[in-house]
Amino acid sequence: MSVGKEFTKGLYAENPVFKQALGLCPTLAVSNSVRNAVGMGLAMTFVLVLSNIIVSLIRRFVPRKIRIPIYIVVIATFVTIVDLVMAGFAPDLHKALGIFVPLIVVNCIILGRAEAFAGRNSVFRSLLDGLGMGFGFSLALFVLAFIREILGDGRLYGFPLLGPGFEPMLIMILPPGAFLTIGLLMGLMNWLDKRRCS
């Protein structure tokens, strides 16, 4: 596979959220506003890239039987770093994301990439893979949050967009809105893919 593909595959073809249905919890939970979605996307990308790099670096020294616990420790370390830095420099965002920052540890995307990719590939390819998957995740989060915030709150990134005359569809910003939006988006993508093939 060409090097460029390692990056671009994560954006659409192997998008972790829409195509692999991984990392759903934070995707649905923090996509109620674009601001939260962007913050979460950045945090996630940071952890993905760095844990991919480290896992790839140590892949020859790790005994096969205990590789998973070791990957988890590596991931948890970077997650805690993000948690601490966010608390210190972006306290409002830290407050809004709540327990979903530490929960990045159990995000199946990260452990999945460590196990399926970084543990078997060179550092450079792992970096690109992490970056691509991170951006793919952020993109999915952004699309969801964009739809939900505009329809559910009439705002975008906290700025009033549709004016006071718009009656927000409250349900979009509540939990059900997240399920409905992602279900419809996935259906739409299946439909588009099928049309393109035929």
Binding site: T80, I81, L84, V85, A87, G88, F89, P91
Partner: peptide
């Protein structure tokens, strides 16, 4: 990291 970040968080 905590040593560096903690004063900042408390601030």
């Amino acid at each position: 990291v905590n040593h560096v970040a903690k004063p900042r968080i408390e601030e």
